[in-house]
Design a protein around this nucleic acid. Structure first.
Lengths: 259, 259
DNA sequence: AACCAATGGTTCAAATAATGAACCAGATGC
DNA sequence: GCATCTGGTTCATTATTTGAACCATTGGTT
């Protein structure tokens, strides 16, 4: 691994629970030498990828990433395309919706919409990294990912975020197969307790899976009516989003059932 | 300059006119050795900062920057805070408004809003890099930047984007001084012909200037009425945005004139 | 007030990774 | 069928990165 990767991997330790990280913490987290971390962070700071909060002390992400993200959106306007789809899907289902995208070997939730209807709703934070085996979105993605990628996930550690999280590789494999067959995945409390999610994959122009569109509802509201309505609306929204970004579904993707 | 800076500087060559760059172009643009550029880009690709468009060929920015930008917004929610301010200011003035932020030694326009009123309007693109000497936003920022920073800008090459661009260092210095005295800057056709812009600086919690809020109108619509109304609305909006992000104006910032 | 354990930051010889000229192989143009 | 692009690769030379140890401050404990 080259120096550039090491430096940029340091940025991976930032998340919603750790928006600012001190030198010592970063040294511990990364397992690298303190002097190395210091030099890398100093260099990242010089190019505006991180900044120090005031004068000295801990680091946080810098303003330069905003410019790059805006240009990425200009190249591949998937987030902007998703906003209307998310909003309409939220209104139609009455529940929280979100879009997650593959970023290398991670799946991050990057855009969401809330429904106005209910006082209680599933709350989302952008940039949260999702597990593949414990979320509907993750299973939907795995259903259409490379075999080697799926194997790597099933081989790796399968953490249980909740008591309901499925961690048996064989069982997860069955869920993935079901996702591929039906074009949709579900998770009941696999990531957050009391949350029942449905998700469909989103495809790019090369027919590769890019991420997933999901509806997350409190389990208590998942009535028989909703269990019918949500998959129907979600499937249509997923196809619409894939289409809006110029994507193409793979040949084995199950078509919309007739109404 | 270390390897990390070299790699990340490569990302600086991406812009709206060049969303995808091939290896040879990048080699020429950067002046570095082709093997070096190749290795750096391969490494950036491995961590998801760039990706290759399909299989092989040219590079574009990768999905990883989206996650970092979302986290940056969670740290410093300046873009989300700006959206309402921009929208209201656009509605009030009937013109295009935008927010630009300092990113190291660059000023990039990162968020904008259009007014619904007119058929003609000034169009904006996010992530466009602005000149300091030829835009109202740039002058507003320089008015409250470090002396050394101002000196570096005036010392550097001062490109004329339009025939109207002021490129005389002494004249620009006078514009900067005026911006500091009045808390507002103007530019008539200094960046795009026929565009008359006003801008006010935005400050952070440490009283340092972060960027500028601007109103851009076609010169033809800049009537005496608008010349009064826009500065008034803009000044109020700038103070509101500074306040909403927890910023503090420096002691010498001219207060709002009484109505 | 002395002590201890943190913190961020710095040094310098040794170890390692980056560099660049030259070289492939394929595509495109003439 | 020659010339010139392109992206990609090699390998000895060179320059950068590395890491143990060391400072200076800070905050908490006895």
């Amino acid at each position: 691994m080259g120096t550039v990767s090491k430096a940029l991997n340091l940025l991976g330790y930032f998340n919603h629970g750790r928006l600012e990280i001190g030198l010592s913490d970063l040294t511990r987290l990364s397992g690298m030498n303190k002097a190395t971390v210091y030099r890398l962070m100093t260099e990242l700071q010089a190019v505006g990828f991180v900044e120090q909060v005031d004068g000295a002390r801990s680091y946080r992400l810098g303003p330069q990433v905003l410019r790059l993200a805006a240009l990425r959106e200009a190249s591949v306007p998937i987030l902007s395309a998703s906003r209307r789809v998310l909003r309409e899907l939220s209104e139609e289902t009455g529940e929280t919706t979100h879009l997650s995208l593959l970023q290398g070997d991670q799946l991050a939730s990057l855009s969401h919409a809330y429904a106005p209807q209910h006082a209680t709703k599933v709350m989302m934070e952008d940039a949260e990294v999702l597990t593949f085996h414990g979320t509907a979105s993750g299973l939907a993605v795995l259903g259409f990912a490379d075999d080697s990628f799926v194997a790597a996930i099933l081989d790796g550690p399968l953490e249980a975020r909740t008591p309901q999280t499925q961690t048996d590789p064989a069982a997860i494999r069955r869920l993935i197969d079901a996702a591929r067959r039906t074009g949709m995945a579900q998770s009941v409390g696999g990531f957050e307790a009391e949350v029942h999610s449905h998700a469909v994959p989103i495809f790019g122009p090369d027919r590769a899976v890019l991420g997933a569109l999901a509806v997350a509802a409190p389990s208590s509201r998942m009535t028989d009516t909703q269990k019918q309505a949500i998959p129907r609306a979600l499937r249509a929204a997923g196809l619409a989003l894939t289409q809006r970004i110029g994507g193409v579904c793979p040949p084995d993707f199950p078509p919309m059932p007739l109404p």
